[in-house]
Design a protein around this nucleic acid. Structure first.
Lengths: 336, 336
DNA sequence: GGGGCCAATGTAAACGTTTTCATGGCGGAA
DNA sequence: TTCCGCCATGAAAACGTTTACATTGGCCCC
């Protein structure tokens, strides 16, 4: 392996000068600098991150702890985070697919000591979890988390508000028999979406609501769709807790020849890029996913820069109802 | 920050013993071990990766250099890589969205010295590129790359074979006027898919082929679909170089009230999870994306373990045609 | 012409960990 | 009882880099 010493020897200077020439830029004659740069290029020298981190106490990396990587939601989220991280010269470590709290804890521990900060999005973060498994000195930002944990800032989407708005929209369209396809009960955002729906329909005269289980996957939406069709009384409108389930549900309806929105209206949540290309295009609640990732990273960077500003504040990113054809509105291609 | 010295003091042993107790496991009395573990837990000690890497000369991390993170393809790929990496106790660094060769080179350099190996999937990797920007001593695996570069193993999907098979299938179904929606010309896989299509239709009597530009996005598929409908003579069948474009194209057809497959058949490539939930379900070429990521990582791990086995071999992962309703076959829900 | 100052470069310590080698103590065998 | 050997533990070096501090040399100003 070629080290800074090799470069120093090759350029006939000391290692300190090499370091200065390659990093700071200060206090080096132009000639020396080019001599060093030439030598470094010739030897294909690349500084060892570990050694640098050890002395600077910075890894220039942040970690993202994610629940799972299925579907477009997470590719969008990671994209947003990655882009923002690049802008700050930070590397991105991802870790996902933690089945239970134990695995999450293990992943959390493994990441510490390798990153300058952590973006945590996991259903397993319960009160006390972080206090137990996360070093006090490591900045972290919670994304979409229920728990008002310690000193961590949180960033959530307005799942509750979005679900209320969408439910209101469905009611305004005249739908009275509503069905809700739930996300995984472990997820805070899924619970919030359900709550928004439930509270909006509660006590409305002539409005009925039914609930079907789901786990955010297309497959579970498909099954829910079939179950709805098989039921004695079909709903007027179905609200799925995310777009992937809405798409699965739509597939079941299409397969059975049930017209959407003619016979049953349908709405989703997230506005993944694919939603507008469905047939019919999917009415949904837009979450600016990439922006969410971006905002979370920016918050984390702030936290790293000034750890003393350690406020357990909560940022809520607004959602907006995007009306397309699937809910019985006139076909609307706006925003395409 | 709490270091190994703090733990050593707390447990009244030397740092060497702490290191042994926490890592190796060898040569430590049970009592000492528990005392050390208790102390470590109490102090919430977590070893500093940088220091460890410096002496062991291993980072326990691998880097993935990706072109872009749009859509389900990449979330599937990252998922496959992440899962396999976890199984090996490796961390995953991702870097994406490199507009040009310069950015790719910068990302490549930045990753060296931080990882034990590299998974490279980028259209900008041309002959000589790696020789110039990649240290000889860093194991790397090329995914979906054209260039038979140096000592790097490569893993590709059988894009050519898959495209041939799908084109053959469309011809066998009786379609004669074919259209192909191309992927970005810079991508090797996109070129291979085009080549498979072009060579299969070449010289077939009574068969016409037309080509439309695309860039793998739903949006570009949508535009291509509209262009096809506006043309003087519509094709019998459209073959899109990936599923996202096929979905965009399908959306354009649906919007215009054009029946698929009745009036125009449609096929895609990749078999992203969403494909089977389209209306109609999408005939496509299945690429086991997560498995591809898994295989690439395994190959890389092998390369890291025994760098001397440095063969510039090529692994080709087979594809398979998945017939669903969109190509004019009877509706087939198999594999759902 | 000499002294002082500043800019360029060098020397060496420090970062936290692993690991090699040394050391001490204890048990068992003679 | 004595000696040998082994096992648990400790001391210290090493990893590659940055950076505070030291040193050199040249220039300007008096």
């Amino acid at each position: 392996m070629v080290t800074i010493k090799d470069v120093a020897r090759e350029a006939r200077v000391s290692v300190a000068t090499v370091s200065r020439a390659l990093n700071g830029g200060a206090r080096v004659t132009p000639e020396t600098r080019t001599r060093i740069e030439r030598a470094a290029a010739r030897l294909r020298y690349v500084p060892l991150g570990a050694a640098r981190s050890l002395v600077t106490r910075r890894t220039q990396a942040i970690g993202a702890l994610l629940p799972d990587l299925f579907g477009e939601f997470f590719s969008e989220l990671i994209r947003g985070i990655d882009l923002a991280a690049r802008a700050h010269g930070l590397h991105l470590l991802v870790s996902s697919s933690h089945g239970d709290a134990g695995e999450t804890a293990a992943a959390l521990r493994a990441m510490q000591g390798r990153v300058d900060g952590l973006l945590i999005m996991s259903p397993h973060v319960e009160p006390g979890f972080l206090r137990k498994h996360l070093s006090d000195s490591l900045p972290a930002v919670l994304v979409g988390s229920a728990s008002r944990e310690r000193r961590c800032p949180r960033i959530n989407t307005d799942d509750y508000g979005g679900a209320c708005a969408m439910t209101g929209h469905l009611l305004a369209k005249g739908h009275r028999a509503l069905a809700f396809i739930e996300g995984p009960a472990a997820n805070f955002d899924a619970r919030e979406r359900r709550r928004g729906f439930a509270e909006t329909v509660a006590g409305r005269r002539g409005v009925t609501a039914s609930y079907l289980q789901g786990d955010y996957s297309e497959e579970s939406g498909f099954r829910a769709g079939r179950a709805l069709l098989a039921a004695r009384k079909r709903p007027d409108a179905v609200f799925a807790a995310n777009d992937m389930m809405a798409i699965g549900c739509l597939s079941a309806f299409n397969e059975a020849g049930v017209n959407v929105p003619g016979e049953i209206a349908l709405a989703g949540f997230d506005d993944i890029p694919m939603a507008r290309y469905m047939h019919p295009p999917l009415t949904t609640v837009r979450v600016r996913i990439a922006e969410l990732g971006h905002a979370a990273l920016e918050r984390l960077v702030g936290q790293i820069a000034t750890p003393e500003t350690t406020a357990a504040d909560l940022t809520t990113v607004p959602c907006e109802v995007v009306v397309r054809a699937s809910c019985g509105a006139r076909t609307d291609t706006a925003g395409r």
